[in-house]
């Protein structure tokens, strides 16, 4: 067994530059859109790889919960340098909310075995940013979240969390759940060699029964929340656009005064 087992949670999300929309059942339409590894998860993969490079005997496992296409997110993480992957895929998972997904993810992480769980700060689709702390709650281990810097040494995580009011230095013993922000360090690009090597790396596929979860515990019908309506926001009506003729600032002042904004 490796001395440091790192599990990175990743999510396959619709490309934010496409027209994202809702399906008829008011879940996120994932069928006709290009998907990719959530950009913010790349920072978690990067930190996992840096920690692995700094210690002798570590292993990085990438885990995702999602449909068949979600394999795309795992492939990207493996091509960056992850060692192996776990894909939880089951039709009954469709429509799960954060409480459902987090319980499946927690079970998959326990199944895999872990010392350190790494997550991105939020997904780029749902964007809740709560999954890491919910995972820590479910796994019963310390949470160190929204980190801009972290070091793992001798079974201890030391880290910096930059908040609005203060910057905090944190310390916890492993096992722990960590999330990192986009300030933690640029994520590497997969090399050609990395992409080729990724094709040979092991991917374990699990369904709900492998994890001992009943189908009626997850999915849309069992979700803790229900979306009743999803309406496209009317496009903003484009207002006045003028080229500055030397009085642009004054005209802007007129506009703001007219709207009683100043």
């Amino acid at each position: 067994m490796k001395t440091l087992r790192i599990v990175v949670c990743v999510k396959y999300v619709p490309d934010a530059t496409c027209d994202r929309r809702f399906a008829d059942d008011l879940t996120v339409d994932r069928d006709d859109l290009d998907g990719l590894l959530s950009e913010l998860d790349e920072y978690a993969v990067e930190q996992a790889l840096q920690i692995k490079e700094a210690v002798d005997d570590a292993e990085v496992t990438v885990v995702t919960v999602g449909p068949e296409d979600a394999l795309g997110a795992l492939s990207k993480a493996l091509s960056m340098g992850g060692d192996k992957a776990v894909h939880v895929e089951d039709d009954d998972l469709h429509g799960s909310d954060v409480l459902g997904t987090s319980s499946v993810l927690a079970r998959a992480i326990e199944h895999t075995g872990y010392d350190l769980v790494l997550c991105g700060m939020a997904s780029t689709d749902g964007g809740m940013g709560v999954l890491p702390s919910i995972l820590a709650e479910r796994l019963g281990v310390p949470q160190l979240t929204q980190l801009s810097e972290l070091t793992v040494k001798d079974g201890v995580v030391t880290a910096r969390r930059d908040g609005d009011l203060a910057s905090e230095q944190l310390r916890a013993s492993l096992p722990a759940v960590v999330s990192v922000t986009d300030r933690s360090g640029e994520a590497r690009y997969p090399s050609f060699k990395g992409i080729m090597a990724a094709k040979k790396k092991p991917v374990e596929t699990l369904d709900l029964s492998d994890l001992g979860i009943a189908a009626d515990e997850v999915g849309l019908a069992a979700a803790w929340t229900k979306v009743d309506e999803a309406a496209q926001r009317p496009p903003r009506t484009v207002g006045t656009i003028l080229a500055d003729d030397g009085s642009g600032g004054r005209q802007l002042a007129d506009f703001l005064a007219g709207r009683r904004l100043v």
Binding site: V238, I241, L242, A243, D244, G248, G249, Q251, L252, V262
Partner: peptide, 21 residues
């Protein structure tokens, strides 16, 4: 997206707006 936009150099337009306000 804008309700009002000025195509121009912000270093001309913004200080002029500030001075005007």
């Amino acid at each position: 997206l804008v309700d009002y936009g000025v195509v121009g150099d912000l270093f001309d337009v913004v200080p002029q707006l500030t001075a005007e306000l």
